[in-house]
């Protein structure tokens, strides 16, 4: 019979809002590291936004990147410490908007890190502004109060469709709206860490995650929105996998 217990790597509480997906992502990361025996050489790179909570929550050496620069920071660490397991836990504003260049060039250089991007379609920490890459057309935010309008704000973009063409090791998207998808997301994250353990290239795992506070919904409604709306724009699955299947 399976048993489930909080990973021992998690040593402090994080200040995420009720129903936020970051906590699940943090759990999946730490479970994967512990299951692979990598917890004793993990280096955590967080962004100065909601993922920042993970800096103190984990029993890992950790560093906060300047906003958007996590992939570059991780590059510096991994080059100096190739035997450490270096991962990024950052948001979609960091990874796809202000830090698009850093994310893409880290992918192009095929730096063997594991990058986990939380796609919650919004700038959470700063109070819920529109995310140019991931806020859906029509979604209301504090900086798109009447709903995102493609004529003035452009369309959201599926970054994994871009990154998969940069010849990376692994790119996949998971979701957190039910246990089945959480399990699938965990398999992707684990693959990302296995790739790093096996000295392969750049792995990126994006996770469709709720931000009930800034979406102004209950956590259950937020999960429904991911399932019914966000996943349509951002399909889950493996986008590229040098070592195996591609969907």
């Amino acid at each position: 019979m399976a048993t489930y217990r909080k990973p021992v790597s998690i040593i402090n509480e994080a200040g995420w809002c009720g129903g936020c997906g970051h906590g699940v992502v943090q759990r999946l990361i730490t479970e994967c590291l512990e299951e692979l025996g990598l917890q004793d050489k993990a280096v955590c790179v967080v962004d100065i936004a909601c993922s920042y909570w993970s800096l103190d929550a984990l029993d890992y050496d950790a560093i906060a990147g300047p906003h958007g620069r996590c992939a570059a920071v991780a590059t510096g660490i991994k080059k100096v410490r190739p035997d450490s397991t270096v991962y990024v836990h950052a948001g979609d504003g960091s990874s796809y908007v202000i830090g698009l260049s850093e994310t893409c060039y880290t992918a192009i250089r095929d730096i063997p890190i594991t990058m986990i991007v939380v796609n919650n379609g919004i700038f959470g920490m700063t109070g819920g502004q529109m995310n140019l890459a991931t806020t859906l057309i029509g979604d209301k935010t504090v900086s798109s109060k009447e709903g995102r309008d493609a004529d003035t704000m452009g369309h959201p973009v599926d970054m994994l469709n871009i990154i998969k063409n940069l010849d990376v090791e692994f790119a996949a998207r998971g979701a957190l709206y039910d246990a089945k998808h959480i399990d699938e997301t965990k398999r992707y994250i684990k693959r990302g860490f296995e790739n790093q353990m096996n000295k392969k290239g750049f792995s990126i795992i994006e996770v469709l995650s709720p931000c009930p506070t800034n979406w102004k919904m209950t956590p259950i409604q937020a999960m429904e929105k991911i399932k019914n709306e966000n996943e349509k724009m951002f399909p889950v699955g493996i986008y590229t996998d040098r070592g195996g299947e591609t969907v």
């Binding site: 990147g65 570059a72 450490s84 260049s101």
Partner: peptide, 19 residues
């Protein structure tokens, strides 16, 4: 590393110095 820009290069330095 020839960085994609100076900002990114400095972020690599931030990581490498911390390491």
């Amino acid at each position: 590393i020839q960085g994609e820009n100076e900002i990114s290069s400095m972020s690599m330095i931030w990581g490498a110095a911390a390491a």
